[in-house]
Write a protein that binds this DNA or RNA. Structure first.
Length: 677
RNA sequence: CGGGGUGUAGCGCAGCUUGGUAGCGCGUUUCGUUCGGGACGAAAAGGUCGCAGGUUCAAAUCCUGUCACCCCGACCA
């Protein structure tokens, strides 16, 4: 997608103007062949609005390709970006962006800017360094914890290296905006962010310092023109445009809003098998969500009712030492994980007030061994803020962490047990026979076999009436409720579950890398920090906010994960560092130099970015290096073909070693046509 | 934060068990021969062996401490 219509901020005269170069003995003398510096004609400044491509020479750039990558580089994007001379490590999770990488990043950022501007947002730039007090109001110093970089200045004051800018921009707005007439506003920046990740890994995919576009919107209303929903939808469209224009294969999925708070959120994920996040999709309805958020469609309950089923044998205790995981225990006990019950203990995070009123409270979640508990769903069903219980605390309460069974909850005060629908059964409908469970033995290093809900729980499980099959079930045994046990959907969705959007459809799974995330923040920050405006009735009103992020440097890495082969990245045209690499096999040959200049000039005039490989090296290494740059088109100038008036034209994505011989007169048109197709 | 591992030339590694002049491959420089998918020959430059203590006549090697980096997990806009 290039061409004259594609206005660009690259200054066309940024290359080939190094006067000192001609005196450098190692370099080819060269002339300026881009007469494009804005020139004064009379009193008028003429500025071209046609995009000219950049032209650069390998010999005067820094593109340090290597045959081998550092041994700690494991994922493809890390290995290939290093080998291709895009990045170099500086420290753990900190990288230099070398010229090629910066060109990719700038191309992504330019697309981001164009689409953000088109969607009505304005760019600004906030500092990376913030006084620590700003984080105190919103308590995010605690929420971020050790992930927040702290910097002490010479006066002993604490500062933060910003992981994100909600506080700074909200503070800014407090000083600038006080009327509904000034809203809505949507402000963004492209800036370096800092997070002291516990474990930086995978090269650019999880760094401690990275480049991000973050946008924040401010509204007087939720609905209607200028409301948050309006801007949120505009951002959704802008993001779709951005990643489409970057020519990435991506999915927009529903997501949990996470610790940043807020009510609705979508993630934009680059699809690739090596991604860290799992996405569940209903292919027919188009519904997609991340595992944490994904809903499960309606399912029939067990045919004989919850918990119903005959015991299959006497309760046997087995000694199971040194088996850390469910799978290990299952193997040892000779059962499948789906025949095991996993019992997870959460502690209710009570306010001091609630603690005085209700005492310590716990929520125990029971799911099948092959399922994962979804903390968000447990939170919603219990109606309480919860966190995974501290092992020592839980053990003091009588839970043998690692070996807990549902029986441990019976008769305990302030404990709500939530049993997942798939765990609350005693009869296997598929096999048409009663089933048994393996559960913890409620003491260290013991598990039991043949657990039966009705026989072995120590109480009638059918007390768990009024099954909480939906979110928002009133609090059970906690806070004065009359149930201490409920059945509900509390596990992560998984492959094969019914689609929540379309009856009869099943969910499929795929992997992705998160590159964008949009949130409806609501009033979390404006309320905490006191951002208010006067509305048309002269009433004070708390401003409604949204925020919208794109990992720019991560997008570059994700693109390589999505599109590469063993020889290097394969960039899409839209964000390739250059579009064409002109590979001179006899760089000392005067005729070849002349032709190279001519082609570069013509390509540049057509808006094509050109890298000239003018190094005096053998063909083999030059071709390997060309592949490592991932530049979409390689045009090779070599004596034999040239004698017949031809050059070689080869696409990076084509596997074959050799390209086609094209007449010199046609090659520029062919490049442009290929790039625009 | 828990478990595991690694620090020796720009990169990849050997040497350490059993202390005795610091090596190999790639890359780099020079010369020559090559020249369409990471060439060949000859010569050369380049390391206070992560750092600090200790043991010893002598430490890359043994001991103690420390720092850095990586992997798995926990965590995670």
């Amino acid at each position: 997608m290039i061409g004259a219509a594609d206005a660009s901020r690259y200054s066309p005269d940024a290359t080939m103007t190094n006067d000192a170069e001609s005196s450098h003995p190692q370099r080819q003398p060269q002339s300026l062949f881009l007469p494009s510096r804005p020139m004064a004609t009379g009193s008028q400044i003429v500025i071209s609005n046609v995009r000219r491509g950049a032209v650069a020479r390998w010999s005067s750039s820094l593109i340090p390709t290597t045959r081998e990558a550092p041994k700690d580089a494991e994922v493809p994007s890390h290995v290939l970006l290093h080998r291709g001379g895009f990045i170099r490590p500086v420290g753990a999770g900190i990288y230099d962006y070398l010229p090629l990488a910066l060109r990719v990043i700038n191309k992504v950022a330019d697309i981001v800017r164009e689409e953000m501007n088109a969607a009505g947002a304005s760019e600004l730039l906030m500092p990376a360094l913030e006084p620590f007090e700003l984080f105190k109001d919103t308590k995010r110093d605690e929420a971020y914890g050790d992930n927040l970089f702290r910097v002490k200045d010479r006066k002993g004051r604490m500062n933060a290296l910003a992981p994100t800018h909600e506080e700074v921009i909200t503070d800014l707005m407090i000083g600038c905006v006080n009327s509904y007439k000034q809203l809505p506003l949507n402000l963004y920046q492209v800036q370096t962010k800092f997070r002291d990740e516990a474990r930086p890994r995978a090269g650019l995919l999880r760094c401690r310092e990275f480049i991000m576009k973050d946008a924040y919107s401010f509204h007087a209303t939720l609905e209607g023109p200028g409301g948050l929903n309006d801007t949120y939808d505009a951002m959704y469209r802008a993001y779709t445009n951005i990643f489409t224009r970057c020519q990435l294969d991506f999915s927009a999925v529903e997501a949990e809003s996470g610790p940043i708070g807020g009510s609705a959120s979508h993630e934009f994920m680059v699809n690739c098998a090596s991604g860290e996040d799992t996405i569940l999709k209903c292919l027919k309805s188009g519904y997609a969500a991340n595992v944490e958020k994904c809903d499960v469609g309606p399912r029939p309950g067990p045919s004989k009712g919850y918990f119903a089923g005959e015991a299959t044998g006497t309760l046997e205790e087995h000694h199971t030492p040194n088996l850390p995981g469910i799978d290990d225990v299952a193997k040892f006990m000779k059962v499948k994980p789906e025949n095991m019950l996993k019992t997870i203990v959460f502690k209710v995070q009570s306010s001091a007030e609630d603690l005085a009123k209700y005492g310590e409270e716990w929520v125990v979640a029971v799911v099948r061994g092959d399922h994962d508990v979804n903390e968000g769903k447990v939170r919603d069903v219990s109606g309480c803020k919860i966190a995974l219980a501290d092992v020592k605390e839980a053990e003091a309460k009588g839970f043998a962490i690692g070996f807990v069974s549902p029986r441990a909850c019976v008769g305990q005060k302030g404990v709500l047990m939530i049993v997942d629908r798939d765990a609350a059964v005693g009869f296997d409908d598929a096999k048409a026979k009663s089933m048994f469970w393996v559960t913890g033995g409620d003491k260290k290093d013991y598990h039991v076999k043949h657990f039966n809900w009705q026989r072995d729980l120590g109480k009638d499980p059918l007390d768990a009436q009024g099954f909480a099959t939906d979110k928002g079930f009133p609090v059970g045994g906690l806070r004065g409720g009359d149930k201490d046990m409920v059945v509900a959907d509390i596990r992560n969705a998984m492959v094969g579950d019914p689609s929540p959007k379309l009856a009869g459809e099943k969910l499929t799974a795929s992997r992705g890398i998160e590159v964008g995330h949009i949130f409806k923040l609501g009033t979390k920050y404006s309320e905490a920090m006191g951002l208010q405006i006067l509305d048309e009735k002269q009433q004070k009103q708390t401003v409604i906010m949204g925020c919208y992020g794109i990992g720019v440097s991560r997008t570059m890495a994700a693109c390589v994960e999505m599109s590469h082969d063993e020889n290097g990245p394969v960039w899409p045209n839209a964000i390739a560092p250059y579009h064409v690499i002109l590979c001179m096999l006899q760089p000392a040959d005067a005729a070849q130099q002349q032709l190279c200049k001519q082609l570069a000039s013509e390509l540049s005039a057509a808006g094509v970015d050109v890298l000239i490989d003018d190094r005096d090296d053998r063909p083999g290494p030059k071709f390997k290096d060309a592949d490592l740059t991932g530049i979409p088109i390689r045009v090779t100038l070599a004596d034999k073909a040239l004698a017949a008036g031809g050059v070689e034209f080869k696409l990076r994505r084509d596997k074959t070693g050799k390209g086609d011989i094209v007449a010199v007169a046609d090659v520029v048109a062919k490049c442009v046509a290929t790039l625009n197709s």
